[in-house]
Simulated scan of single mutants.
Amino acid sequence: MAGPSRILVPVDLKDGSRSVVDYALQLARPFGATVDVLHAWEPPQYVAPDLLVASPGWDATSLEAMARDTAGKELEALLRKVDGTAPVALSHRVVIGEAGNVVLEEAERGKYDLIVMGTHQRKGLTRMLLGSVAQKVVGRAACPVLTLHVSPE
């Protein structure tokens, strides 16, 4: 079996995201694989994403545009901190939508060989209320999924 050539790394920009990206980069290096880091921002269900946000001195902008911009900056800051000792083709993007569906759609569209993602191992009521993106992806992805238990950094 050949090693992966395209690795998708979904991150939530919370605790452990950096360690997941670092792990994916270490995995990609020996195979010369590309790594695409993805963050999905899901608009709040009780607020329209085209709601305009403004404050004194700012231009009015949509909630979606502001969230995409903020998440993009956080993602860039995260990627500046990762281990860059050996070159790996690395790209990143922010997509709007429900995280599990976005990851599955991107994995299929991009014909990825592997998905590397973190899981917080939530249990009980928290898992029931929030669901598990990792569980959804593992259960429905067409390619292999490597999950890493992440803890606060």
Rank of each mutant, 00 (worst) to 15 (best):
M1K: 15
A2S: 13
G3P: 07
G3E: 05
G3S: 03
R6Y: 14
I7G: 04
P10L: 01
P10K: 05
V11L: 08
L13C: 11
D15C: 14
G16I: 08
R18W: 09
S19M: 13
V20S: 09
V21K: 04
D22L: 00
A24H: 03
L27I: 07
T34F: 02
T34G: 09
A40T: 07
E42I: 06
P44W: 08
P44S: 04
P44C: 00
Y46H: 02
Y46C: 09
A48I: 10
D50Y: 13
L51I: 12
L52N: 02
S55N: 14
D59G: 12
D59H: 11
D59R: 12
S62V: 02
L63F: 08
A65Q: 14
D69V: 00
A71E: 13
A71F: 09
E74Y: 14
E74P: 11
E74S: 13
E76F: 02
A77M: 14
A77K: 15
L79P: 10
R80N: 12
G84Q: 09
G84I: 11
A86C: 01
P87Y: 03
A89F: 06
A89M: 07
L90V: 10
L90T: 15
E98C: 07
E98F: 01
V103H: 03
L104H: 10
R109T: 15
K111R: 15
Y112C: 04
D113Y: 05
L114G: 06
V116T: 03
G118P: 09
G124L: 10
L125K: 05
T126R: 01
R127I: 05
S132P: 04
V133M: 03
V138P: 01
G139A: 09
A142E: 14
C143V: 11
P144A: 00
V145S: 06
L146Q: 14
L146R: 14
L148Q: 09
H149D: 13
H149Q: 15
E153G: 15
